[in-house]
Each structure stands twice: as C-alpha cells, then as structure tokens.
C-alpha cells in the first residue's frame, strides 16, 4: 500500500518537472520530437534509479559513518558522472541496439539536475506517504526514484506530443519557440495541480 502511495505521489502529485522544477533544461531541449523525448526518458529512468541506489548506499555506509556528509554534493556528482560513463561503456558492449537509441542522451544526463536532485532529496528529506514522517529506506528510495523518473518520462512524452502539434500552428513571432512552449508547460502544470492532495 505504501509503495502504491509513493508511486502515485512521485508520478502525479509531486511530478518532478511540473511541481519540483528539476531537469527542466533537457525537458525543454529534447522535447521537440516524440521519438527523442521517449529515448531521453528511458535513459533518464535508467540513470536516476541506478544513481539513487548507489548514492544512497555511499551516503549510508561511507559519508554518514565517517561524518563526511558535508562532502555530499561533490561525492554525489562524481558518482553520477562516473556512473553515466560506465553505463555508456557497458551498453556499448552488451546491447549496441539500446546504445544506439540512448547513446547521444547519456552524456547529457550528468548535468541533468533531476538526477542529483533526486539523489540528494532521498537522503536528506523526510517524506510522509499517508503515514508518519520518516527517512526513506533503501527499498522505498528505489521505488521513489523509479517512480519519479516515470513521472519525468510521462511529462516529457505528453509535452513532446503537444509540441509536435504546436510546431504546425501559426503563433505570433515573439511567441515562437520557447515562449509558447513555456506557456504550454504552465497550462500542463495547472492541470497537474489537480492531483495535489490525493496522497
């Protein structure tokens, strides 16, 4: 039951893009076409889940016992950067097809603040999912990270669909490109506000 609440909360209520403002740059950057948007979503999903698990363990077994939590930011970003590199190398060898699909997006992910943001949030914030406020355990953290990245994918794919239609329409010159995109995201975010309070 609690896992279900985590999933609904992370995908809809606290959608990472529309409510938490994380990962906006790639969200605006690669949502021009549905195909690139879904590729990016997949890659982000993979990296966020993996990075959260690894940083969670590093925080719990290295930083906290040695009183080094002030090194969190620097340690996490290095782990994420290394992880992304590794994923890239492994994918290239193991599954060239997937590498073809995700390849160009992987290097971009290091500077996607959604990854670092979720990793830091999971180890530093208390969450309430229907019950008492508490720090997340490893299982919950993994589910939360995975669900959050699904929310990222959902927002991205929905938005790419809207944008493909937008590009076919005549808009005033000053609105062309990003401004009209931002305004559409704003309206999307308004719609997502309707989910608030469910969990």
């Amino acid at each position: 039951m609690e896992y279900l609440l985590i999933i609904v909360s992370a995908i809809f209520v606290n959608n990472i893009v529309l409510a938490q403002f994380l990962g906006i740059c790639p969200f605006l950057g690669v949502s021009n076409k549905l195909s690139t948007a879904s590729g990016m979503s997949l890659a982000v999903c993979f990296v966020i889940t993996l990075a959260t698990v690894v940083t969670y363990l590093i925080n719990k077994f290295l930083l906290v016992p040695f009183g080094l939590t002030f090194l969190q930011t620097i340690a996490f970003i290095l782990v994420i950067a290394a992880l992304v590199q590794m994923v890239e190398i492994v994918l290239k060898k193991v599954s060239p097809a997937l590498y073809q699909a995700l390849g160009i997006f992987l290097p971009l992910i290091t500077t996607n603040c959604a990854v670092l943001g979720v990793a830091i949030n999971v180890v530093s914030k208390e969450f309430t999912f229907g019950g008492e406020a508490h720090m997340l355990g490893l299982g919950e953290a993994t589910v939360y990270a995975f669900a959050t990245s699904l929310g990222y994918g959902l927002a991205m794919i929905l938005f790419a669909g809207i944008r493909e239609h937008l590009s076919l329409n005549e808009v005033p010159k000053a609105f062309k490109g990003l401004p009209i995109a931002l305004i559409s995201v704003g309206i999307m975010a308004l719609a997502f506000l309707g989910f608030s309070g469910i969990v």
């Binding site: 409510a19 009209i180 931002l182 305004i183 704003g186 309206i187 975010a189 506000l193």
Partner: peptide
C-alpha cells in the same frame, strides 16, 4: 509551479 512557467514564458 504553473505560474513560474507562465511568467517566464
């Protein structure tokens, strides 16, 4: 959240 996108746009 929605206001942020709208105002920036």
């Amino acid at each position: 959240a929605p206001g942020a996108f709208l105002v920036l746009g």
